[in-house]
């Protein structure tokens, strides 16, 4: 079994497609929806954690690509710009998965990409633009 986190971006004409249903029924994938968002222009964004056999996962990703859904691995989504970080800790109390964490002895902040679900809360709260979404 393999697990991967992906960001899916849907153009407006695909927002009515039952994508998650198909990933579950036809590709036998476990789907955990981490985050969803539809913009005023009706472009959709879904962050999914997909678990399944490697082969099925690859087939599922092919299906999404053919459909015209843009996919991106989540670990590349949010970046911590260490040099810009002042270790103020403002982000740490709002990070839902504790990907951003304070080491209490040093009072310094660290970022664990694997735990990040790209909720982008840190981007809203960081006063120093030290968190960035990579496009």
């Amino acid at each position: 079994m393999t697990t991967t986190k992906v960001v899916l971006r849907f153009p407006p004409e695909l927002t009515d497609q039952p994508v998650t249903y198909k990933l579950i029924k036809e590709y036998d994938l476990m789907v955990n929806i981490l985050r969803g968002h539809i913009t005023p222009k009706e472009e959709g964004m879904l962050v999914l954690e997909l678990t399944g056999k490697k082969k099925q996962l690859d087939r599922g990703m092919d299906y999404l690509a053919k459909l015209g859904v843009e996919t991106q691995r989540l670990s590349k989504g949010v970046k911590w710009l260490k040099d810009r970080c002042t270790h103020c800790t403002a982000c740490t109390s709002l990070c839902p998965t504790h990907a951003l964490l304070v080491e209490r002895d040093t009072m310094m902040v660290s970022f664990d990409r694997d735990k990040c679900i790209a909720c982008e809360m840190c981007i809203t709260v960081c006063p120093y633009s030290a968190m960035e979404v990579q496009v």
Binding site: T86, C88, T89, T92, S93, L94, R104, M107, M108
Partner: peptide, 23 residues
């Protein structure tokens, strides 16, 4: 405050600083 949690009105509330202690 620096422990990361305080109690307000009987509720455990996570804390964060805007001033950097490390710096």
């Amino acid at each position: 405050l620096k422990s990361g949690e305080i109690s307000v009105d009987g509720k455990e509330v996570p804390t964060a600083s805007l001033s950097s202690y490390a710096m």
